[in-house]
Computed example of a mutant assay.
Amino acid sequence: MTGQRGVAGQPAAGPAPAAGPEPAAGATVLCVRMRRLDGEPLGAPLYTGLLELLGELTPLVQPAPPDTALLDVRGALRYFGRSAPELAALIRVRALARYGVDCAIGIAGNPMLARMAAAGAPCGGTVRVGPDPGAVREFLDRRPVAALHGVGPKAARTLCAYGLDSVGRVAAAPPALLRRLLGARAGREVHERALGIDRTPVRPGAAARSLAAERPFARDELDPVRHRRALLSLTEELGALLRARGQVCRAVSLTVRCADRTGLTRTRTLAEPTSHSADLTAAAYALYAALGLQRARVRALSLRVEELAPADRAAHQLSFDPEDEKARRLEAVADRVRARFGPHAIARGTLAA
């Protein structure tokens, strides 16, 4: 069965796989999305504690801040003699008991499917994608092509223009057509993912290459101006943190949490590695605009900067724009003021209003 749902503290309904399946025989990857019961963001200390909790079951835990983690549980299935839904129920019970945190968990045979399953799971529930090809097809076929991991707005528009508006239609399309439309590498990857194939492993300790921050709203927020103000606040915070650590990022990821508990995530690779707040703001605004939210009721916005690297090893394209150089000098001055008098000593007028 494609989508099996469970409640907090109970395994998902339906027959459980035998303990200790071989990698190709069943679901081995769990995607865990964590939420505090009071709706507040987790915060770094609580998130770290939850990662330690997950590490008690398997050493193969890949953090995805601010509230998600991937687990490869192949070894855990054999060691504990439990099925994947039973491990999911154990995680949920321990997170509730120790930290007052509930979880939505996706179970599948690879990280992509597990993420998509977790995105559709209610808080306190489990969605499982069965291991056989028929179950994978049933899970994917009717989903819009934009829901497929790795398909951005531009690629989705291109595919939809040729009638490839669902994952099932992309999977049925000739691979040569996809390569012509998207390019050789992207076309091959999109075709594989439409078939439910993801060769990406779970990488423990990958969180060191990203930083994240979140802005929850006091009530579900409809105003795009307030959304953009929150994004500006996030990019100012993350930019200052990157510069303080002597790092630059290569990509920016925006996650929008809606009132119905669904989440929308988009990622953009930057033209060059940067820690400049203005560049991060431009990327965040572009990601927000691409989502086309219109009058969506937004509960929280989170931003993650990814693929971090030392700033002294990053190449920077010289600019002859005096305004850009002026902005960078002012940014450096603001960083020195914050370092001496505190993070709130100086802020943009838009944020202080």
Results as ranks from 00 to 15, higher is better:
A8E: 01
Q10C: 02
P15L: 12
V29D: 09
V32K: 04
L37P: 00
G39T: 11
E56W: 03
L57Q: 08
P59T: 09
L60A: 10
V61K: 00
V61A: 03
P63Q: 06
Y79T: 07
G81S: 04
A89K: 08
V93P: 00
R94T: 06
R94A: 14
L96K: 12
L96D: 12
A104K: 03
I105W: 00
G106Y: 11
N110F: 04
N110D: 07
L113A: 05
A114S: 14
R115I: 09
M116T: 10
G120L: 13
T126F: 02
P131G: 09
A135S: 15
R143E: 13
R143V: 05
V145C: 05
A146T: 09
A146K: 03
A146H: 10
A146E: 15
L148V: 02
A155H: 14
A156F: 06
R157K: 14
C160Y: 01
Y162W: 15
S166D: 13
S166N: 10
G168H: 13
V170A: 12
A171T: 08
A172E: 15
L178A: 11
L182C: 11
V190N: 07
D198H: 13
D198M: 12
G205R: 07
A206T: 06
A208W: 06
R209C: 04
A213G: 08
R215S: 06
L222F: 08
L222C: 04
R226D: 14
S233H: 07
E237H: 04
A244W: 06
A251F: 03
V252Q: 07
V252R: 10
L254V: 00
A259Q: 10
G263W: 12
G263S: 14
T265P: 00
T267N: 05
A271P: 05
E272G: 10
S277C: 12
S277W: 08
A278F: 02
D279Q: 10
T281S: 07
A282S: 12
A283F: 04
Y288Q: 12
A290R: 09
Q294A: 12
R295D: 14
A300Q: 07
E306F: 01
L308W: 07
Q317S: 13
D321G: 07
K326D: 09
A327N: 14
A339W: 05
F341R: 09
P343E: 07
A347H: 11
R348C: 01
T350C: 01
A353I: 08
